[in-house]
Design a protein around this nucleic acid. Structure first.
Length: 300
DNA sequence: ACCCAGGATCTAC
DNA sequence: GTAGATCATGGG
């Protein structure tokens, strides 16, 4: 851990308090943008107007104002060993936004709208299962299914707060029981099957280190319930490939409308060329701005 | 009753 | 390899 502290000492000052920590010098961060851009499902506004949620085995409350990030529920050690990476705090988002803003006016406006987005580096298994559930589903229901899943099969962290279930706990579950508990319908079969494969054949950022995105996509699609879109969500939101570009109905509309590319293959070839290695960030800025209704697209 | 939701699968051509 | 039906569930 000391090497991490040494590495980021010029970037952030971390102060420990009674209930949590304060991190000074945090730029390009807006909790609303981070937690509501569609990349995660376990963070919610509390009555105080702050986002609370679970990541890994950690429960926290997040506040941000004026370059100061407060993580209630975290120690200094947990910050260096977990949250620093989770929030991708060592990446220069200003540079990414600068590069993408030069592409076109539409992109520039999307970034202006979601300028506080950071792509979380989430846990592989949780991301896999969450985005299997996301298919042909809406966000409020996705969140309910996942909360039910954690409540029934996850380890209790504290009062009424549960961690995401471990792979082996979902691999051994009866499909009908799972369906009764989480109400995810036909996706329950996918969840059990995918969990079983994950136990045998897990993946992580590290395991993808030596293969290109095409092979990573092929690998991901072995899991039942993982198609092209879900595969890219997992690769992007685990921080494995930042040129992953999930194409859903909304993003497809923009791509067709604005850039005149329509098939999945066409779209991917275009964005890899146009946005390059930071295509995934572009996707998030676009998705958030469109879905929130800030940017309009012709409905086809 | 019908349509939709960050799609994926299965089947048939 | 690709177009079409089908897949639970809940909300509008």
């Amino acid at each position: 851990m000391l090497d991490i502290v040494e590495r980021v000492k010029d970037m952030y000052k971390v102060e420990e308090m009674k209930k949590g920590i304060r991190v000074y010098g945090v730029k390009d961060f807006n909790p609303k943008h981070v937690f509501e851009c569609g990349q995660c499902f376990r963070w919610n506004l509390n009555p105080m107007g702050h986002y609370c949620g679970v990541a890994g085995e950690n429960y926290a409350e997040i506040k941000y104002s004026d370059g100061v990030l407060e993580i209630i529920g975290s120690t200094k050690e947990e910050f260096y060993t977990f949250w620093l990476d989770y929030f991708d705090l060592e990446r220069d988002y200003s540079k990414i936004k600068g590069e993408l803003s030069l592409k076109d006016e539409y992109m520039r406006r999307a970034i202006e709208f979601g300028k506080g987005i950071r792509i979380l580096r989430q846990e592989p298994f949780e991301t896999l299962v969450s985005f299997i559930i996301s298919a042909n589903n809406n966000i409020p229901r996705i969140k309910k299914c996942i909360e039910n899943l954690c409540r029934n099969y996850g380890e209790k962290i504290k009062d009424d707060v549960y961690a995401f279930p471990k792979p082996h706990n979902l691999a051994n579950v009866c499909e009908n029981e799972l369906s009764d508990c989480i109400k995810a319908g036909y996706r329950c079969n996918y969840i059990v099957e995918a969990s079983r494969l994950f136990v045998e054949q897990p993946f992580s950022k590290e395991s993808f280190q030596k293969i290109d995105i095409a092979n990573a996509r092929r690998f991901m699609r072995q899991y039942k319930g993982v198609g092209p879109k879900v595969a890219d969500c997992i690769l992007l939101f685990t921080g494995s490939y930042y040129n992953a570009f999930p194409v859903d109905v909304w993003v497809r509309k923009v791509m067709t409308n604005l850039y005149n590319v329509s098939t999945h293959k066409e779209i991917d070839e275009f964005v890899q060329e146009y946005f390059g290695s930071i295509a995934g960030f572009a996707q998030q800025y676009l998705f958030y701005a469109i879905r929130e209704g800030f940017l309009k697209v012709e409905v086809t």
